[in-house]
Design a protein around this nucleic acid. Structure first.
Lengths: 158, 158
DNA sequence: CGCAATTCAATTGCGCACAACTGAATGGCG
DNA sequence: CGCCATTCAGTTGTGCGCAATTGAATTGCG
């Protein structure tokens, strides 16, 4: 934890701007590329993330999907309904805990995985970065995410 | 532009997941911290970005604000209306080009800059990263944003 | 056992992001 | 000059993200 010593406020303001600007721009630039790549799959980017989780882990309760993606039911419930309406996903109340809803893939949902196979390679090519730079980027992002989350938690406790 | 040679599809899928997961999580983690920091200013994070632009550049047409922030009128028009309703901003048709709307700060909008002065320092502290790491993060993000944008443009031309 | 606290998914409400479109104003070109 | 393409801001519609609330099911504790 650096205490950011003798930097003047003006410098801080400018640096802060660049960081939040850059992160914002990058996030939406990724969204734009995914939008193009996912268009003929009929998926949005968040829907694709949910499908990735289901392809990897199979049947899951909504709560656990939210755990993987840091999303709550306010976001997931309508999203899953749309995936269900598209015939990719099946939702049913868990028999052993009636509060929980289990989400599983339909045949079409599983089959979509084949057509999605090209997406990662095309996305990586679009980034224009060597794999090791992407790994460094991911490591930095994860570090900052962890720190930001605990900062919010501490603020909430106070 | 690396061509990502002999990596198997399974590896690519996993790496891709981690990158988009990480970026998504980081973006929303930043949003969470900004939400806390900006709460008593009565600003959302995108509204704060617009105010930063206005504080730095003064009066600007909507189009130029969108240029700085990569946002279009579909996002900015309602956002600016809310800032106007909050008394922070003033909007008026440009006399020399009636299509354009000039956005400027009100007294309250300018005054808010003082109260926002603490935000950058508190955000930087929350990231838990030394300044040089944040600079590296920003550089990586900017590189990838540029590459992604041109990739989308090329796809649009084809 | 019975009641209170907790855990889930779902819903509501608000704001942002983006595509598609509208309509007014402008500029260019024949 | 007259017309057409372009440039703006604004509107509409869809989907995501999050806070707050609801309501049902479950758990825990006295």
């Amino acid at each position: 934890m650096t205490t950011l010593p003798e930097l003047p406020d003006e410098e801080l303001l400018r640096l802060d701007q660049q960081i939040c600007f850059s992160l914002n721009a990058a996030s939406r630039a990724f969204g734009g590329v995914y939008r193009v790549l996912l268009k003929d799959l009929g998926l949005t980017y968040p829907q694709y993330l949910v499908m990735l989780v289901l392809w990897e882990h199979g049947e899951l309760p909504v709560k656990r999907i939210g755990g993987y993606l840091r999303l709550d039911s306010g976001t997931l419930s309508p999203l899953l309904k749309r995936l269900e309406a598209a015939g990719l996903v099946r939702r049913e109340r868990s028999p052993e805990d009636e509060r929980s809803v289990t989400v599983g893939l339909t045949g079409a949902g599983s089959a979509l995985r084949e057509r999605a196979g090209q997406v990662p390679r095309r996305l990586l090519a679009a980034t224009g970065l060597p794999v090791e730079d992407l790994a460094a980027l991911r490591a930095l992002l994860d570090r900052v995410t962890g720190a930001l989350d605990s900062a919010v938690l501490e603020a909430a406790e106070a």
